[in-house]
C-alpha cells in the first residue's frame, strides 16, 4: 500500500518537473538572445540562492509565506471556492498581529506571542469567512468578493500604518517595531532564516493528511467537486465550504503573522510582492495538492530571489522571471496526456 502510494506520488511529480525543465530550457534560449553571458545569468538565477547561508536564509524567508498561503488556498479550491483573496487575508493577519504586538508590548512572551499569532490567524480567517458565507447563503460569486476584499483590506492597512501605528522615526510606511521578546527565533545553524519555514513545512504535510486521509477532508472535497452530490450523501456541504474558507483565510493570516514576527519584525506596507497571487499560482501548479505546493512555492521563491541576483550580476532584467513563470503556467496547463493515463483520478495522489 505504502509502496503504491509512493509510486503514485512519484508519478504525480513527473509532469510538473518536466514542465519546469522545459521552461528553464526555453528560458535559457531567451537569456542567450539578450545577454552576452547567458551561463552566468542562469547560474545567478538558479544557484546564487545557495552561494551563502544568508542568501539561503532569504530564500527560505521568501518561501515561507508562499507555502502557507498556497496551502490555505488549496483548502478553498478543494471546497470549490476560487479564492483569489490570499493577499487581503495575508495583510489582515499581518496588521492584526502587529497591532496586538505593539498594543500589548508589556505582556510576557508566553502570553503575548500566542495572542499575537492567534489574532493574526483570526483576522485572516475573518476575511476568508466573508466570501465563504456569502457564497453559501446567497450564492454571491467568490471571485468578485475576494478581489474586492483585497483592495479594501490593503487600503485599510495602509490607513492604519500611515495614520495610527506609523514609526515616525523611520522612512516609509512602516509600523513601530514589535517588542523583541516575541520575535520568532531563527532556524538553528542558518542565521536570518525564520523558523516559520519549519512551521510551514509541517503544516503543508499535515494538510495533505487532513485533506486526503480524513473523513472531514473527504467531505470537503465532495462538497467542492459536486455540492449537490455532497448534500445527497448527507454531508453538511455548506458548512464544509465555510470552514474551508476559514482555514484558507487562517493560513494566509498565519503567513502574515509569521512574517511580521519572524522576518519583518514590523508591518511594512510594501512587504508583499503580491504573495497572495503568486501563492495562487503555486497552488494551481501543484494541482491543488498541499504537499506538492511546498515544492512549487520553493521554486517560485528561488526564481524571485534568483532574478534579483541575476539582475545585479548581469544586464538581464529581473522581469525575465515574470516571463518564465508565465511560460511555466502555460506548459503546466497544456498538460500532455499520455495514452491510457487519462483514467488517473484527480485525487489519486
Amino acid at each position: 500500500m505504502i509502496n503504491t502510494n509512493f509510486k503514485e506520488s512519484l508519478h504525480a511529480l513527473i509532469a510538473p518537473l518536466g514542465a519546469i525543465a522545459l521552461t528553464m530550457a526555453l528560458g535559457f534560449l531567451l537569456v542567450a538572445a539578450i545577454s552576452d553571458e547567458p551561463v552566468l545569468a542562469y547560474r545567478e538565477l538558479l544557484f546564487a540562492n545557495f552561494d551563502s547561508l544568508s542568501n539561503f536564509a532569504l530564500f527560505l524567508n521568501r518561501a515561507t509565506p508562499l507555502v502557507l498561503i498556497s496551502v490555505g488556498i488549496t483548502f478553498a479550491f478543494r471546497a470549490g471556492v476560487f479564492n483569489v483573496g490570499g493577499e487581503g487575508q495575508l495583510f489582515a493577519g499581518a496588521i492584526a498581529t502587529t497591532a496586538v504586538g505593539i498594543a500589548f508590548a508589556g505582556l510576557p512572551a508566553i502570553i503575548l506571542f500566542p495572542l499575537a499569532v492567534i489574532t493574526g490567524i483570526a483576522a485572516g480567517a475573518a476575511v476568508g469567512w466573508v466570501p465563504g458565507i456569502l457564497k453559501v447563503k446567497l450564492g454571491v460569486d467568490e471571485v468578485v468578493v475576494t478581489l474586492m476584499l483585497n483592495t479594501i483590506v490593503l487600503l485599510f492597512t495602509s490607513y492604519l500604518v500611515n495614520q495610527v501605528i506609523r514609526d515616525t522615526t523611520a522612512y516609509g510606511a512602516v509600523s513601530w517595531k514589535l517588542p523583541e521578546h516575541i520575535w520568532l527565533p531563527t532556524i538553528p545553524g542558518i542565521p536570518g532564516a525564520t523558523s516559520g519555514f519549519m512551521i510551514a513545512v509541517v503544516l503543508s504535510l499535515v494538510s495533505w493528511v487532513v485533506l486526503f486521509r480524513t473523513q472531514w477532508g473527504t467531505e470537503v472535497r465532495s462538497a467542492g467537486t459536486n455540492l449537490r452530490y455532497a448534500e445527497a450523501v448527507g454531508i453538511a456541504a455548506g458548512r464544509r465550504v465555510i470552514t474551508a474558507m476559514l482555514i484558507a483565510g487562517g493560513f494566509a493570516g498565519l503567513a502574515g503573522a509569521l512574517y511580521v514576527l519572524g522576518i519583518g519584525h514590523r508591518f511594512e506596507q510594501n512587504f508583499s510582492p503580491e504573495y497572495g497571487l503568486i501563492a495562487l499560482t503555486c497552488a494551481l501548479l501543484a494541482r491543488v495538492n498541499p504537499a506538492a505546493s511546498l515544492f512549487t512555492a520553493l521554486y517560485y521563491a528561488l526564481m524571485l530571489n534568483g532574478a534579483a541576483y541575476m539582475q545585479i550580476s548581469t544586464e538581464v532584467p529581473r522581469s525575465l522571471v515574470i516571463l518564465l513563470t508565465g511560460l511555466l503556467v502555460l506548459l503546466m496547463t497544456a498538460r500532455l496526456t499520455r495514452k491510457g493515463s487519462n483514467n488517473q483520478t484527480f485525487d489519486a495522489f
Binding site: 473527504t218 472535497r221 465532495s222 467537486t225 459536486n226 449537490r228 452530490y229 455532497a230 448534500e231 445527497a232 483520478t345 484527480f346 485525487d347 489519486a348
Partner: peptide, 12 residues
C-alpha cells in the same frame, strides 16, 4: 447530478 462526484474515485 446528485448521485456521484465524477472526479472523485470509485472508492470514495
Amino acid at each position: 447530478d446528485r448521485g456521484l462526484s465524477r472526479n472523485m474515485s470509485i472508492a470514495e
